[in-house]
Design a protein around this nucleic acid. Sequence first.
DNA 1: GTTCTAGAAC
DNA 2: GTTCTAGAAC
Length: 198
Amino acid sequence: TPTPTSNSAKPKPITSIGNRWSDALLPYCKSPEDHKDSVVYYDDQIVIIRDYYPKAKHHYLVMPRRIIPSINDLKITDIELLEYMNEKSISYIHQTLKCDLSMFMLGFHAIPSMKQLHMHIISKDFDSPSLKKKEHWVSFTTDFFIPYPSLYNNLKFNQKIIIDKEKYLALKSDPIKCPKCSNVFKTLPSVKEHYKSC
DNA sequence: GTTCTAGAAC
DNA sequence: GTTCTAGAAC
């Protein structure tokens, strides 16, 4: 049996503290001018980018320029920033996309994966090859998706965001449902195909 | 967040 | 045999 040689070592793993993938949105906020391929709008307060793995035909992320790690870090003093994010999103849909607001959802994931507060602007077709896991479906078609007005009212009423994490985690083990007719499906491809004509 | 892939489900 | 899901990734 040949003995291992010095060049048989495995590739060096990523060992830095924290998960670098979860920081991937930060550069867009820090220097939007350097990412004009993804950035579709920016000003002093916010950035709007195309989602790199769109879960529908139209999918954008709206983020503050200032670092706010997640919805759980929102303060009551951020209420005007939220209003601004909503206003600019609606303007983008109307003026740039020239689409009807009713074909979109604006909102936040109850338990986001990526750092930096981001509001989704997503069309309701959910027709995209990047939507490939049950978790994706759940995150946009159930209460896991918190519409802008709900998050706004949560912050305004409670002076901070209050999230029942257990409730949202439990959604992942519910059966796959069509959000229009509530019929249950066994697989993700089957519900996606059904949804197109429901 | 995604990729990869083993093995379950069909 | 092929489709599909779900968990590890150091």
